[in-house]
């Protein structure tokens, strides 16, 4: 068994290429017991490849990867007994019912939880006899998580668990993940939703083009880059980023998706000079507001583009 202090996941110098494309290019990180670790990045960043190597579904090209203290390339079978896996956008045998699927998957493991308990855990009691093809998106995702819990795993992998769900279904899935965390499960998840990472993850790694750009707790990541708060308004042509960067207290300005964001150490001063400048050009900044910097800002700052395409 893994000692309390020993990480449940240890990755060092991991590389994986598909032809000429370096999907994962020298990634290193650890995940501690009981931790919820999030991997954040746009599509194609290498998150899924990384998580599938950890799950024993792909062979790494180089680097060392240990899960629950075991080398994934050598002990995949014993690791698979003790981890739970939810893959990105998988539909299951469409004509089997929720109960049948849980019974079936349970039979794959040496030890498994009672089906009834799993159904209750993901709140699918009313749909227990429904075929998986007839479940809603949110219900399918819950089933997929129940299947990941079937062997009562110590470590759970969730690959974009809420992609494609409506906000209500996403909220209820978040509660489910928080419940697992409260039970002391270690969780590694990927997502491209910033709020999701901020809501659920103890620590976050921001990944792009096969590299981890930055890693830490969400407040750390924000605090490390942004001592400022953000002043934002709808972009108008007359207010150029270069000019705005010279306003009082502004450290830098960015324009993305029709919105201009000024990162400012002196919000009152910035707004004062901004309004004066706008007045002299006879324009009015619309939807003007102030907020704390978020993970989104961190990502924008790191990569120069917004996370959601």
């Amino acid at each position: 068994m893994t000692q309390n202090g020993e990480p449940v996941i240890g990755v060092a110098g991991l590389c994986k290429c598909y032809g000429d494309v370096k999907a994962v290019d020298g990634v290193s990180f650890t995940v501690g017991r009981g931790e919820v670790f999030g991997m954040l990045g746009p599509n194609g960043a290498g998150k899924t490849t990384t998580i599938e190597i950890l799950e024993g579904l792909r062979e790494p090209d180089s680097g060392s990867v240990t899960v629950l203290g075991m080398d994934v390339t050598k002990h995949a079978a014993s690791i698979k007994q003790r981890i739970g896996v939810q893959l990105q956008s998988v539909s299951l045998y469409p004509r089997l019912t929720v109960t049948e699927l849980l019974d079936l998957f349970g039979s794959f493991y040496d030890h498994h939880l009672p089906t009834k308990q799993l159904i209750d855990a993901v709140d699918l009691g009313e749909r227990a006899k429904a075929r998986s093809m007839n479940l809603s998106g949110g219900q399918q995702q819950r089933l997929s998580i129940a299947l990941a819990l079937v062997n009562d795993p110590e470590l759970i992998f969730l690959d974009e668990p809420t992609t494609g769900l409506d906000p209500q279904a996403r909220r209820s899935l978040w509660d489910l993940v928080k419940g697992l965390q409260a039970q002391g499960k270690s969780i590694m998840m990927t997502t491209h939703y910033m709020e999701e990472a901020a809501e659920l993850c103890d620590r976050v790694a921001i990944m792009d083009h096969g590299h981890i750009l930055e890693m830490g707790t969400v407040p750390e990541l924000i605090g490390r880059r942004f001592k400022e708060r953000a002043v934002f308004f709808d972009t108008t042509p007359k207010l150029s980023a270069a000019e705005l960067g010279k306003l009082d207290g502004v450290t830098h300005a960015s324009q993305e998706d029709g919105q201009t964001v000024l990162y400012s150490r002196d919000v009152a001063g910035t707004i004062g000079t901004l309004l004066a400048m706008a007045d002299s050009l006879s324009v009015e900044p619309k939807n003007l507001g102030i907020r704390q910097a978020t993970l989104e800002d961190v990502f924008l700052d790191l990569t120069g583009r917004a996370l959601r395409d």
Binding site: G56, L57, K80, L87, V90, S91, L92, Y93, F105, L147
Partner: peptide, 16 residues
């Protein structure tokens, strides 16, 4: 169909 839907892959993630 099972490969396309990822069912084979999902089962590959179990000890089966």
């Amino acid at each position: 169909q099972q490969r396309e839907k990822g069912i084979l892959k999902r089962i590959g993630a179990t000890p089966l």
